[in-house]
Nucleic acid binder design. Sequence first.
DNA 1: CGTTTTTGACCAGCGC
DNA 2: GCGCTGGTCAAAAACG
Length: 542
Amino acid sequence: MHDIIVMDPSTDRRVSHSCDDGHRSISHGNRIITEMDFFADANCPKQKPPPAAIVKTEAMDDGVGRQNEEDINTSLNLLTGSIGRDNKSIVEDGASQNKEAYNQRKKELELLHAKINHMNAENQRLKGILNQVNNNHYFLQMHLVALMQRLQNQNTITVKNEEVIHGTLEEKQHVGSIIARHFLDLGKAEIGEIGEGCSQSVSEERSRDCSISPNIVESMENNKPPVVSSSSISGVVPVLDHLKRSAGGIKNYETSEEAFHGWVPNKVPKFNTSRDVDDEQKAVTSSMIRKARVSVRARSEASTISDGCQWRKYGQKLAKGNPCPRSYYRCTMSSGCPVRKQVQRCAEDQAVLVTTYEGCHDHPLPPAAMAMASTTSAAASMLLSGSMPSPDELMNANLLAKTFPCPPGFATLSASAPFPTVTLDVTPPPASNSSQRLQGHFLLPSLNFPNNFTSTPHVSAQALYNQSKVSGLLSPHKGMELPQIIPPLADSTVSAATAAITSDPNFTAALVAAISSIIGNIQANSNSNSSPTLRNSIDNST
DNA sequence: CGTTTTTGACCAGCGC
DNA sequence: GCGCTGGTCAAAAACG
């Protein structure tokens, strides 16, 4: 640093330059020495250039009152510390030295600017990489959840097999019927679910003859434990193939491709795991062999929410109890894709659009559609996993606590919703307390949201957590609609429910995927102004 | 002209 | 068996 004394030519006084950064003045005896950080100039833009300074030879007041009379205006603001007797030559030397120093500093400054620019560019590049890594991490997380769920399914199958092997004959029959129904339902769902990742394998399996003898069903019919080969356990697809063949052997049960794509049409053919199954069991079985659904509630003025997929409307009906028609769409991104969705406005609040997804895509999805597809897949997997109670389990009160960790009264059966359904509600809670649905709202504070929407505001998650798991086990009030399912929740109940829900990785993943999808769509819509209401709904929830 | 939407008809499940 | 309901089909219309 250089010691500089700056004089104001108008007042012939020392001028004190001050800049917040890198420019400080120190008193050194009678001399005021100003230390300037050259590199701080950029940080002191308001600083006016110092007036044409007068460099005084530093024969300052020495206390005797004698001052050097020669003031030389160099037009430079710098004064080197070296002061000689020959003032003129000294000043000239100092000026040339200062010029050199100035040029040197200038070069250094330019160098630093270049460095800063380079670092900025590097920073931007790293940001991009970080974003990409975050996205990859998110999708890997989703994939991992799905894989873990499949593993869990296999474990469930194994455990049930052991129960059959070690149980009494009656228990064998009981559990055997569970497995039969569970396998068939789960199998179809899993095949659809796997469709994306293992579509090749599945399509290979599809091409096979479906008339191979069904080991499992045969075993059940003979009251023998079903045989699941080790090769079947080792992979999901062989299990599914096994299931397909089992189903095919039952009664040519939907040997067409669609039968194994995950979509179970409403016209579900009844099938019996045993010829002796009574009518009651048939009815329960029939009703339970339905596909899991994922329902998304969101405020939107648009006819549908954009989820990244291409849909074709194939029907519209006026459903009972709702003046708004229900529209039926099927995915057209591939011929024969089994995924369908129903879109209907809520009768109570027609600004709310309820979109219900069924099935799993059998084709690659664009990134925009991945989130919603992951939602339906993960939710379906969760609902149809081993935790899903079979009709037999529904009748077994002892299993209730095991299979449903949520507190009693959390939900009851909706007879109007025969399918196991997860409802993801991203509508903001209404201002008034008029809606009973509000009672079901709760926050999920501990959800591990991916980084790309950590700013997600209050997410009102009316998660009708696994109605198959939840509903049907408790009081099955006929005719209760979804909004009425959830009774008022005390704080402790909310905590327990939150814990129960967040402990299920699939549900978390499903919720995360749905919300991210919707948030993403909202952001997209906000750019195109296509859905102001939906956007507002989220904004309001902050 | 190909694709999408509309809309009435049809079918199956279910309750009475 | 009959009627109601939800879901799907398919021909016609609309659209780009």
